[in-house]
Design a protein around this nucleic acid. Structure first.
Lengths: 210, 210
DNA sequence: GGTGCTCTTGACCAAATGGTCAAAGTTGTT
DNA sequence: AACAACTTTGACCATTTGGTCAAGAGCACC
């Protein structure tokens, strides 16, 4: 019967498919991260990608499919910095390195951060399953590691969950609220990230050193 | 010539106008804070307000006018907690009280916080003037106060701007990323705000105590 | 150089959406 | 009660938007 008409296949086969799906996702990231899902149109994305609208829909079956592909891609990398925390490292330094990695992500991938932020602010309609699953279990796991460190006396006693929240919020702030940060600091380029790194190092070092 | 046709006047005159404009703004806050500006429709707002769509447009000339009214109202109260910081108070306690006030706002007015967040994440298209004006000058002023406290030795040396950013981000996180926080903590009601208050008090107390 | 596959697009469609309007219903005042 | 002002709405409109389709262009392999 008439099955998948337009879709070439789940993943790119030819080089032209690979190039175009990448171009589309790149353009979609630009648009979605700036206007949110509902605020973005296929025409905008098509224009940004330099393709026609029907051509977009040749590679992706729908607008939500593009968004989903983007979110899926994002969620894979998003948790990497947290995964890298190692239980047998030096506690304070492990956590400070994590802070720095997150801040680095905010600097290097602000669009991804905003895409994520847009999604969560609006109640995470499309990724609640991933948050309740993958994300929660990873956080639970690392919270236990932190509790272990505290029990061993190598770390000042803190609530590990709120610690993680405060690391997320302070670092992502520089990506998600970039417009505000820039309006207030008027920095040249990314200069303020240096100061942010120094500030956050001090903040969390004082918090965590026993 | 044919001027303001539908609008009763800039501000409500009759009690029925007052009641309805309030109802509309209340409903619009619900809708806008949940779906963002572009993601919200007049029909949604009308339905939430229990009015017909043309009736909305009798009180407000357009969708953006409703949004603007909401943002204007919000900006007035948003800066109050920061204004309340007094230069002749005890520095550490003044700042910790500010943290608590901001956290309280996140708990009491999460919709307002998300409305604001939605706006900033998307580049603050409608309020950049207010951010560059009112907000920036208030922050500059308080940054000077903080610098004064540091010079007097009553406060540990910190970058006042990044300090303020970290207070904003950590507190607003509980409103803006509520969906994520709840998915991870699974709290009953607002119980986690108590823990957040204790955590943030510790975090900033350690940071700020000389 | 033809045959089948991949890729591209102009024209089109149905639904949603912001907004208008004239007419009808309410309310307040004298 | 009557008159004017205020309030409400059903019907309507133009535009935008996600998505379809059939026909045409490239491309590859024999």
């Amino acid at each position: 019967m008439g099955i998948e008409r337009h879709m070439p296949g789940r993943q790119p086969r030819t080089r032209i498919q690979k190039k175009n799906t990448e171009t589309i996702l790149e353009a979609a990231l630009d648009v979605f991260s700036q206007h949110g899902f509902r605020g973005s149109t296929l025409d905008q994305i098509a224009k940004a990608a330099g393709l026609s609208k029907p051509n977009l829909l040749y590679y992706f079956p729908s607008k939500v499919a593009i968004h989903r592909a983007l979110i899926d891609e994002l969620m894979q990398n998003w948790l990497d910095p947290l995964r890298k925390i190692e239980a047998d490292g030096e506690p304070v330094e492990e956590l400070l390195a994590y802070v720095l990695r997150k801040l680095e992500m905010a600097r290097e991938y602000p669009r991804e951060s905003r895409l994520f932020a847009n999604e969560i602010v609006q109640g995470a309609p499309n990724i609640m399953d991933k948050i309740e699953g993958e994300l929660k279990s990873l956080v639970d796991e690392k919270a236990q590691v932190i509790d272990g460190w505290i029990a061993s006396g190598a770390l000042a006693p803190v609530d590990p969950y709120h610690l993680i929240f405060s690391i997320w919020s302070t670092t992502q702030h520089y990506a998600d609220f970039d417009a505000q940060v820039r309006a207030i600091l008027r920095p040249e380029g990314d200069a303020h990230f240096e100061d942010a790194a120094a500030y956050l190092d001090t903040l969390f070092r004082r918090m965590l050193t026993p």
